[in-house]
């Protein structure tokens, strides 16, 4: 039924939100475990960090960041509608707004993360 029904923006927003949420949940399981290594096996933790820094790791992080950012922005959209129900009349516009912010902020961040994978310099250097 989920695939047969031609829902609109609201249904897509919900489906993406849910898929992103489950993905983030899975990552969090991993992430808490890897940070646990800091205290029990620092060497292994360093190896995990190398994976994060590898090209494949960077693709994963970009996807993770995208999931996180979409889930956060759409979550904000949901909260706005929950507490000000009249805004539901503009739920589509709110969703388009989510995507505008997603890409304006998300693309530079994705570049920052992915640049090393292509042997390029990162666009931003905050000197940290």
């Amino acid at each position: 039924m989920l695939l047969r029904y031609r829902g609109g923006e609201g249904m897509l927003a919900w489906a993406f939100h849910r898929i992103a949420g489950v993905a983030i949940w899975a990552f969090i399981l991993l992430h808490v475990l890897d940070i646990w290594l800091v205290s029990v096996n620092p060497e292994l933790y360093e190896e995990v960090l190398d994976i994060y820094a590898s090209p494949i790791g960077r693709v994963g992080e970009t996807l993770l960041g995208a999931a996180l950012f979409y889930h956060a922005l759409n979550g904000l959209r949901i909260i706005i509608m929950d507490f000000w129900p009249a805004t539901t009349r503009y739920h589509k516009q709110l969703w388009y707004g989510v995507w505008v912010i997603f890409f304006i902020i998300g693309l530079p961040v994705a570049w920052q993360i992915m640049a090393p994978a292509f042997g390029m310099a990162q666009p931003f250097d905050f000197g940290l």
């Binding site: 829902g7 609109g8 609201g10 249904m11 927003a13 509608m81 539901t88």
Partner: peptide
């Protein structure tokens, strides 16, 4: 309700 809006549509 997960604010999916299929109902409203």
């Amino acid at each position: 309700c997960r604010t999916i809006f299929n109902c409203t549509d």
